[in-house]
């Protein structure tokens, strides 16, 4: 009897652990679709539109990888994950990659056995409060009730920030951004804290965005990026260089509009030629064909286009490039060379 219970528990846990195979690239190709873990709904980053089609900045990364590997940007199966379920989903093989506003940290990279392939958004944790509270600094939040998504770095940063500043707070743990928004608007918490980009995206969906202010303090570094399982370096390379291709494309002036023309024949710029496969055979090094990067760029445009279309200043979310500008424009985006 005792054994039965133990085996039952092991069986349940075994299902969670699932089958983690080392050849993700082969699996994706055989399957014909890419399983991409995204958030449960954060407008601008990953959310289904009115027609039920997933749209957003993180979604764009998934589509680019699908286009590079499978040749079809729509061959993606989007798996919504919460802050708590995302790592289990990736570790168990339920998804092939996560593009879900996930912060690159030491323990996630090492102890949790994941592989961050780069940074697609340099962010920091901020605070949002209703304007009529009259709060102008996060340090005035002594005694406040804070809504916070569980299983996130923000949960830990918050504890650090309030401890360092010697002020007290009460935490309301929340599973998804949508729930947090509802709790915050109902006044069940005074403050909502998450990555500043997430706050801007959330505020953009409010009826009266002007009634809410983002406090000036940015209390942490939150480099958000796509990640894959540790130990499958071939697949990690594919996702890493797809992201780098998008970033390089912006730097080199390759856009979704001119990519097919540039990929048609070798041009004057050797790096563009290598990127688009008209010169050399970089694609074969990562197990793909020569046009992989051209397809990835054609899927949703280069990094800058993805940014402007989904979260840029002309969208309701209205984020400036800031740290996320190319290094040539004083930002931090810096793709290693295609050589």
């Amino acid at each position: 009897m005792k054994n039965t219970v133990l085996f039952g528990a092991l069986a349940a846990a075994g299902l969670v652990a699932g089958a983690a195979q080392a050849d993700t690239l082969g699996d994706v190709t055989d399957r014909g679709t890419l399983n991409c873990g995204v958030s449960t709904g954060l407008v601008g980053f990953a959310a289904p539109d009115a027609n039920g089609v997933w749209q957003g900045f993180d979604v764009g990364v998934c589509r680019a990888v699908a286009a590079a590997v499978l040749g079809d940007p729509n061959a993606v199966n989007f798996v919504p994950t919460t802050g708590q379920t995302r790592f289990t989903a990736l570790a168990s093989g339920e998804v092939d990659m996560l593009a879900r506003n996930t912060t690159w940290t030491f323990s996630r990279d090492t102890d949790l056995s994941f592989e961050f392939v780069g940074v697609n958004y340099y962010d920091g944790q901020g605070f949002m409060v209703p304007r009529d509270l009259g709060v102008s600094s996060a340090k005035e939040l002594d005694g406040a009730t804070v809504c916070i998504q569980t299983g996130t770095t923000t949960e830990l940063n918050l504890a650090d920030f309030f401890r360092v500043n010697n002020i007290e707070y009460t935490a309301v743990p929340i599973e998804t951004n949508a729930e947090a928004q509802q709790q915050y608007l109902a006044g069940a918490c005074d403050v909502y804290t998450t990555d500043a980009s997430g706050l801007a995206a959330t505020r953009a969906t409010f009826e009266a965005p002007g009634d809410h202010v983002l406090l000036p303090e940015i209390v942490s570094k939150e480099p958000l990026g796509p990640l894959v399982r540790h130990g499958d370096n071939e697949w990690g390379d594919v996702v890493r260089w797809t992201l780098n291709a998008l970033i390089s494309a912006e730097e080199l002036g390759v856009t979704s509009a001119n990519v097919s023309e540039l990929a048609g024949a070798a041009g004057d710029n050797p790096e563009v030629n290598r990127l688009l496969g008209t010169e050399g055979e970089l694609g074969s090094y990562i197990g793909l064909d020569a046009d992989w990067a051209a397809r990835a760029i054609a899927a949703g445009g280069n990094y800058g286009e993805l940014f402007e279309d989904n979260i840029g200043e002309n969208t309701p979310i209205g984020l400036a490039r800031g740290l996320n500008a190319q290094w040539t424009d004083g930002g931090l985006l810096y793709s290693p060379p295609f050589r």
């Binding site: 846990a13 652990a17 708590q84 289990t88 570790a91 102890d111 949790l112 569980t150 743990p173």
Partner: peptide, 11 residues
């Protein structure tokens, strides 16, 4: 929940 998430010790 949170402990599993932070430590990756699902099993």
């Amino acid at each position: 929940g949170t402990t599993i998430n932070l430590t990756g010790k699902e099993l």
